[in-house]
Design a binder for these strands. Structure first.
Lengths: 208, 208
DNA sequence: ACCTGAACACCGTTCAAGT
DNA sequence: ACCTGAACACCGTTCAAGT
């Protein structure tokens, strides 16, 4: 709608080979389709059509639709990892940066809801090519673990196992993100408010 | 596999009308199919076939596949609400019961992963008949809010807005559940361990 | 009212064939 | 190697017609 790029490029010339990086083009198309029209609107035939390529050409680069979705998930984890580290780093690598990380996490999910669901929606099975996605998920997770360790060294966080602390905190932001995506937090700014509240509770606990 | 019930009932008689509660039968079939073979294996044609009913008969009771999935989600929220209240109530409606609630929540998700994903996977859009599902989600949520209020009255929980506290705690258990479903917590017992840890952190906070 | 078969449009995927 | 059209099996959904 907001894009001026035409959906179906009209070819007056006879169909020619797609010179260039077709796998990358497919991935971009898939990500964009999911972002603007939802995952259920993603069809291999549509991707090929919009790229001016035959339907079966895609199978040269991705084993099947699952593999393409796995690549989409991988791309998402890569972006998420970058966003998290940036928030942590520019936030001063302390209490403030950590809070910024939480906000950045939820904002990423809210800004790319369908993409986020592909990353965590169970579409990517542990069986098929999701190992890469899992590793990248671990990479994003590692940013969180590192941030915790650094805070522990500064005496900002208690000395529990940083991996378990990270799992706990990931659970919180992931949970907030999912609730936001499911519309459980009516006003859109409510998500930020909940993250802020969650950050406070994470620090001081709920005991009176 | 473990069931002895035949997949495709053989009818030697000419097809007869399905006397009985077809909507309920459909819902049960859908829930069972999702539980045992995954959501992607759920097809209206298959449901009809297994029920000994024509494909189009289903449309008399559910507008479309989305509506059937919405009913599945509703059923899930109902079960979850029961499981949560039971854990809270038999746990003594105190600190122990509250911890039991958290464990019960995650166990429900782990025991019915596909069903849980239908409830929270965004399949049920806010647009179509998901209002009932949303209301039931609110019902399950209310159990949590009530538990918090009761603990506040007993001086077990600080006097914050119980609704926001409930959202926060729901985020935690929901996040743990999703991570467990995505296989981020390798050993299966790891989920229980994380919930236990989360329950502790919820009480005392992560500040040193 | 409730159910039926036939038909439509649309998928993912495969395959023999082209350059 | 990379791409193509045709074909196959399988969906969700609609519709005129039966009881």
């Amino acid at each position: 709608m907001l894009r001026s790029r035409p959906r179906k490029p009209v070819r007056k010339q006879p169909r020619r080979y797609h010179h260039g990086d077709l796998p990358r083009a497919m991935l971009q198309e898939a990500v964009q389709t999911i972002q603007t029209h939802g995952t259920e609107a993603l069809t291999l035939r549509g991707v090929g059509e919009r790229l001016g390529v035959s339907r079966t050409a895609l199978y040269r680069h991705f084993a099947d639709k699952q593999a393409l979705l796995a690549a989409v998930a991988t791309e998402g984890f890569r972006s998420l990892r970058v966003a998290l580290f940036e928030a942590w780093d520019t936030g001063g690598r302390g209490r403030e940066g950590f809070d910024a990380m939480g906000i950045a996490y939820v904002r990423f999910a809210v800004a790319h809801p369908a993409h986020y669901r592909v990353m965590f929606g169970g579409v990517v099975r542990p069986a098929d090519g999701s190992q890469e996605a899992g590793d990248l998920g671990t990479d994003a997770f590692q940013v969180l673990v590192d941030a915790i360790v650094e805070q522990q060294q500064r005496g900002l966080v208690r000395g529990d196992d940083p991996r378990q602390l990270a799992l706990y905190i990931w659970s919180v932001v992931h949970g907030v993100a999912m609730l936001a995506l499911d519309g459980m937090l009516p006003p859109p700014t409510q998500a930020d408010a909940l993250v802020k509240f969650a950050n406070e509770r994470l620090r001081t606990g709920i005991a009176p």
